[in-house]
Write a protein that binds this DNA or RNA. Structure first.
Length: 373
RNA sequence: GCGGAAUUGGUGAAGUGGUUAACACGCCGGAUUGUGGCUCCGGUAUGCAUGGGUUCGAUCCCCAUAUUUCGCC
């Protein structure tokens, strides 16, 4: 019957970084943590066992997509999302809120909910906080997300203020509609890079008392790094220490480090898998593009220091060939590596928190990755 | 051997007597942050088979040569 529990193990001495433990119905995991994204009940190209092997904990699936296809009833009939997709680790479902930002025309947002144009067949569909929660209840994920609006970072103060207030009303409605005793429900803090709006949103969201808290609305709309870090800094001070904090949609190595330093515990991002499909790989010494001609005869692994299956067995030249030939095995190999890279990063961050030297770790990482002094 | 047609970048090709030779693929780069996977954005022929000629000007007109191709003997 337990939903989710966060235990703060240790705070880093010089920053807000936290080492914690997350107890879920599908295992106990340490944070900081990176969640691979499996929108349509699959982390693209990868099998569940492979995800476990690279050390991933929670994965993210998407309410909106699974609602449209195959439909939450079919997944419920299968015995829930875990059984349906054969993943026995924890699953978090996004609420569909991000689709408000990416799919819906802004004028289709009302107090009641959001009108979407179904991207599969063009049908108009209404997603409301109650509906989003009902779908997530049926999907039976470990963590459900509140249905929020994710306004563009460039939104005006006025728009943002109205938006966060509506998101708060939606959060309350969603919480009241929530009806799955072993599923946790997270609230989402919005407010762009406006200090008082982030504060207001955080305090009011916490008042509603959720099982965990997210910081949303970052890394969109060409938002500057500076604004992203501000959005985090303006939010985390108002979040309770005994609840987990999740920064939504963030996954560049630099942003994960900066997020952890500002007190974030969980991240998710499509970047490792999307970059992989386009031939880009993370390495200790920066991101590389395997399509580049210089890798044609490079018979060394993507990253000599990496312990993943890909780096243990395959060369850049081979993977470049697969990507050039549009073979899916190439995307698979890089996806595996990229996810392992980010998870390894969180492992290193955990170690740095234990040792109270996260700023030193950051400096060294940046030197290697970005060539900074 | 005779006659016809063709010859434009790595490939398939469009095109006009007059500034920067269309487009597609490929190639070379770049992008990508709660995913509408195989997308988006750049760059990529100092030259239009070769040599002459006509013209103020030719990739586009004329001649020759070469190559390819089709038909006939």
């Amino acid at each position: 019957m337990s939903k989710i529990k966060y235990e703060l193990i240790k705070k880093e001495a010089h920053t807000q970084a936290r080492l914690g433990k997350l107890y879920t119905n599908h295992g106990v995991y340490e944070t900081p943590m990176f969640m691979p994204v499996g929108t349509q009940a699959t982390v693209k190209t990868l099998a569940p066992e492979e995800l476990k092997k690279v050390g991933s904990g929670i994965i993210l699936a998407n309410t909106y997509h699974l609602w449209l296809r195959p439909g939450e009833d079919i997944i419920a009939e299968a015995g829930g999302l875990h059984k349906f997709m054969n993943y026995d680790g924890p699953i978090l479902t996004d609420s569909g809120g991000f689709q408000v930002f990416s799919l819906a025309n802004p004028k289709n947002i009302s107090e009641e909910g959001v009108m979407f144009k179904n991207h599969l067949n063009g049908d108009k569909m209404l997603l409301t906080p109650e509906k989003s929660i009902a779908i997530q209840n049926k999907l039976d994920s470990d963590i459900a997300m509140s249905f929020d609006e994710c306004p563009p970072a460039s939104a005006s103060y006025e728009y943002m203020e109205n938006s966060i207030k509506r998101t708060l009303r939606w959060a309350k409605r969603g919480k009241e509609a929530h009806n799955n005793p072993h599923q946790a429900l997270f609230g989402i803090v919005q407010g762009g890079a406006y200090k008082d709006l982030r504060k207001y949103s955080a305090i009011k969201t916490v008042e509603l008392d959720f099982d965990g808290y997210s910081i949303g609305g970052v890394a969109n709309d060409n938002e500057s790094k500076e604004d992203m870090y501000k959005a985090i800094e303006y939010s985390t001070p108002y979040l309770p220490a005994d609840k987990v904090r999740y920064l939504m949609g963030v996954g560049e190595p630099k942003d994960i480090i900066e997020g952890v330093i500002r007190g974030v515990d969980i991240f998710d991002c499509v970047l490792p898998t999307r970059l992989a499909r386009h031939g880009h790989a993370f390495t200790k010494y920066g991101k590389i593009n395997l399509k580049n001609a210089k890798f044609k005869k490079d018979f060394t692994p993507i990253d000599e220091t990496c312990d993943c299956y890909t780096c243990q067995n395959y060369t850049k030249a081979y993977i470049k060939h697969l990507i050039n030939a549009n073979e899916t095995f190439g995307a698979r190999l890089i996806s595996l590596h990229n996810i392992r890279f980010l998870i390894k990063l969180t492992e290193d961050l955990k170690e740095a928190i234990k040792n109270d030297n996260i700023m030193e770790f950051k400096t060294e990482f940046y030197q290697n990755y970005y060539g900074e002094k």
